[in-house]
Amino acid sequence: MRDIFARRKSDDESTDRSDETRADGGVARAGREKPGVVGRTRRALDRRFGEDFVESAPFWFPAFLLMALFVYGAILWNLVISLTDYEGFGLAGPDYSNLDFEMYVRAFNDSNVINASINTFVLVIGFTLTTLVVGLLLALLVDRGIRFENTFRTIYLLPMSLSFVVTAQFWLWMYNYDNGVVNIVLGTIGLGPIDWLGNQSIVLWAVIFALTWQFSGYAMVVYLAGLRAIPDDNYEAAMVDGASTVKMYWRVIIPQLKGATISASVVLMVFALKAFDFLYALVSGYRPPAGTDILATLMVREAYQNTNWAYGSTIAIILFVMALLIIGPYLIYQFRRDNL
């Protein structure tokens, strides 16, 4: 039956041409390797983790090793140190034979730690929220199809390129009691002067304000990227539906910025946990203005000024757990959205 469908090509035409070219330098196909111990381990690893696990290893392994040692190894080591009683100068080092939770008991009863935890919490939440709101407003303004958009954006983002140390110098001067810009501006409307950095009850908010100045440009950039990803017809559809501008943003646009909000918040919260540099530079020392002591500054002070190494490590672990509470859910969220 099959023969009735004439094949269009006769096979006997085929020449040995391809063999000749092979002779002048074609690839000799690699023979199959005999699986030795290395080969078998390799197969086993590939089967366990997926194809190319071994072949791609030379590329990612050095980076992984450095990170594993410096980040995760160091955290484990830090955890162990926090279980010792290590303190003071000298090369003796921690005594690893006697591990207990003494430092943690001490930390939970230390009013400095509790106080710093509260301040950390206020700083993280206050800073993140204000920065997100300011950043979102900036993004919405810049996204209105303005002229010189790039210039405006560049200026709003400029503080982000500065070091915490530089920002601290600038705001130290801005907040100066007699000659600072803030008090002089407030003076023109009959307020102040206020001792921004000396008054314990407002100093933390002064710090948050300065940090918002530095980071709101970052939030703006993230939100702008989010806004640009929303198709134009969303705006048009809302217009056609007769929504007012405010309503359109509130009901249609802002809900679509959830992803941007989440990634920006994580970054900002973690920045706030690390705000050590700023507070250190404000006073050029380990003890930040009263009322702004956070876990990050307390940890460095305990370890490097008071040489209470184990106690500093304990505070560091508390700080790390706080960071983990932020990062963990974020990673799960990213995994669910297939971004990992």
Binding site: L273, A303, S313, L331
Partner: peptide
Amino acid sequence: VAGIFIPYQAVLVP
């Protein structure tokens, strides 16, 4: 990703 966000205080003493 977590390595990006680690507070460096947690590795300082080690």
